[in-house]
């Protein structure tokens, strides 16, 4: 096994170090994260890639303190803004989640509440985090939807999640995540299941927003095309371990781990120029 390449990031926004854990009472059997260590550079786009079940989502969920019930962290730290988040309790996490670190979950539609209108959900989230008046929250919600380029916002505010296409639901989830101006945005497969045409739109939007707000973004994805196009730093996971981490250019031009090479080969399939 090739040791993950050390990176020299001067001022990372997130430093995950030795994260280890699993399901079951002791968190030891079976282990799903094994000594996961990586850094997310500030103000740029990074990616975590790897096959199904490799532990990408659990890692991201651990970072925002939402690891699924039954998951136990046995070791490791999560450094963010000078603190170790791994030790925080639920109340301390509340203060960070949403306003400092936000996450868009795999399958955005499922994370929207089907029984409330889009406008109501957005405004409620904004009020919860900022405590502004009802009408100010409504205005901020409209602005957030305009920001993610939802057409016809006044009408859309009154609609329910099922009336939104997959691409639209994804934009709403993005608006929701960005509404409280986080510094770090975690996106779990933000475009999986969408048509390539819509994926491209959503990715363009993510890149534009991150540039506008100087946001640090960590993308979990299977799409190495998107990684090559937009990301600066890449973490490759397999079976709960980080097998390679590298600047994107190095990863594509001189992958070190055989598994990374395998992923790249599979993405190019036809090997076309």
């Amino acid at each position: 096994m090739v040791t993950p390449q050390a990176t020299t990031e001067p001022d990372p926004i997130l430093v995950v170090d030795g994260l280890t854990g699993g399901f079951g009472r002791t968190g030891e059997s079976p282990q799903v994260l094994r000594d996961v260590s990586f850094q997310i550079p500030r103000g740029r786009l990074s990616a975590i890639v790897g096959e199904t079940g490799s532990g990408k989502s659990i890692t991201a969920l651990s970072v925002i303190g939402l690891a699924p019930a039954g998951f136990t962290r046995t070791r490791g730290s999560i450094g963010f803004e000078g603190r170790d988040l791994a030790g925080l309790d639920d109340r301390q996490y509340q203060a960070i989640r949403g306003s400092r670190i936000a996450m868009v979950f795999q399958d955005a539609r499922a994370s929207l509440n089907p029984t409330f209108s889009i406008g109501y959900q957005l405004a409620a989230t904004i009020r919860r985090h900022t405590g502004v008046s009802r009408s100010a929250a409504r205005a901020a919600a409209e602005e957030a939807l305009v920001g993610v380029r939802i057409p016809d916002v006044k009408r859309r505010m009154k609609q329910y999640p099922h009336q939104f296409s997959g691409g639209m639901a994804q934009r709403v989830a993005l608006a929701l995540a960005l509404s409280c101006r986080p510094n770090l945005l975690l996106l779990d497969e933000p475009t999986t299941g969408l048509d390539a045409t819509i994926q491209a739109d959503v990715m363009d939007l993510i890149v534009e927003l991150s540039e506008r707000d100087g946001l640090s973004v960590c993308l979990i994805t299977h799409d190495l095309g998107v990684v090559g196009q937009h990301c600066d730093h890449v973490v490759v996971m397999r079976s709960g371990r980080v097998v390679e981490r590298a600047d994107a250019r190095d990863l594509f031009e001189s992958p070190r781990h055989p598994y990374t090479r395998q992923l790249l080969a599979a993405s190019e399939l036809g090997g076309h120029a």
Binding site: P151, T197, A200, D204, G228, Q229, R249
Partner: peptide
């Protein structure tokens, strides 16, 4: 369709030809 599917290389030259809407 072709423009929307970037190839898995570092900053491959890209075509910004996009359809409007869905």
């Amino acid at each position: 369709l072709v423009a929307a599917a970037p190839v898995a290389r570092y900053r491959a030259p890209r075509d910004d030809y996009r359809l409007r809407g869905e």
